Amino acid sequence: MEVPAPGMIVRRSAPEGIATKATKSGRSRRVPIGNRVLPIVERLKVDKLPSDLLFTTVSGSRLHRSAVLRTMRWERTGRGRRIHDLRHTAACPWLARGVDVSTVQAWMGHASIATTNLYLHHLGTGADLASLERLNRAPGATGGPSAGRAGEQQ
């Protein structure tokens, strides 16, 4: 999908060993594609119909999770993380950059905003962010400790 902005429509799931089925929520969702990822997606969709799977093997067959894990050497590169943890890797920067929680909820396909709110604990509170900003100010900057009296040599 390219209008109004680049994105993918997620309509189905194809877990390994199970027939293609609807998404967990039963609804399709639009997921945005950032500018850095767009060229990769453009290459992947060459000679494919909109109804075709985007991520496939070289021969066009369904790409199974086990093959992805093996190819990526996930036991080593994943460092104890699950593939599902990549969803956190996507959601947290969106939220940290100010994307509205309800928009992230739609992109993630969460039925409840409470599920999306679980990602917020990774970001800290507004008080955490404000305090860290104060700590990172240069000495003498507004709100920071004084670097010395005006005109004094340090």
Rank of each mutant, 00 (worst) to 15 (best):
E2D: 13
P4D: 01
A5T: 08
G7Q: 10
M8L: 14
R11S: 07
R12M: 15
S13E: 05
S13M: 08
P15V: 07
G17A: 11
K21I: 02
K21N: 03
T23S: 04
K24Y: 11
K24I: 07
G26H: 05
R27C: 06
R27Q: 10
R29K: 09
R29C: 04
R29D: 01
R29N: 04
R30F: 11
V31S: 01
I33W: 03
G34M: 04
G34F: 06
N35G: 10
N35Q: 15
R36V: 09
L38F: 08
P39Q: 03
V41L: 03
V41E: 03
E42N: 10
K45G: 07
K45N: 08
D47W: 07
D47I: 08
K48L: 10
P50E: 04
P50N: 12
S51V: 07
D52R: 01
D52K: 03
L53H: 13
L53D: 14
L54E: 04
F55W: 13
F55M: 05
F55P: 06
F55S: 03
T56R: 12
V58E: 14
S59L: 06
G60C: 04
G60D: 00
L63C: 07
L63P: 02
H64F: 13
S66Q: 10
A67S: 15
L69F: 09
L69V: 04
R70W: 04
T71V: 15
T71A: 15
M72F: 13
M72V: 13
R73Q: 11
R73H: 15
R73S: 12
R76H: 09
T77L: 15
R79V: 09
G80F: 11
G80V: 13
R81Y: 15
R81L: 13
R82C: 09
R82W: 06
I83G: 07
R87K: 05
H88I: 05
H88A: 03
T89L: 05
T89M: 11
T89R: 08
A90T: 08
A90F: 14
A91L: 01
A91N: 00
C92W: 01
W94R: 01
W94N: 02
L95R: 05
R97H: 14
G98Y: 01
V99C: 00
V99M: 03
V101R: 02
T103M: 13
T103V: 15
T103C: 08
V104R: 00
V104G: 05
V104P: 01
Q105A: 02
Q105F: 01
Q105K: 05
Q105H: 04
M108F: 04
H110R: 04
A111N: 11
S112V: 00
S112N: 06
I113C: 01
I113A: 07
I113Y: 02
A114M: 10
A114P: 04
T115H: 07
T115A: 12
T116Y: 03
Y119R: 02
L120D: 09
L123D: 00
L123A: 06
T125K: 08
A127S: 07
D128C: 08
L129N: 11
A130G: 02
L132V: 10
E133Y: 12
E133C: 12
R134M: 11
L135C: 10
N136Q: 14
P139S: 14
G140C: 14
G140W: 09
T142F: 10
G143F: 09
G144D: 13
G144L: 09
G144E: 12
P145W: 14
R149P: 13
G151H: 15
G151R: 12
Q154E: 11
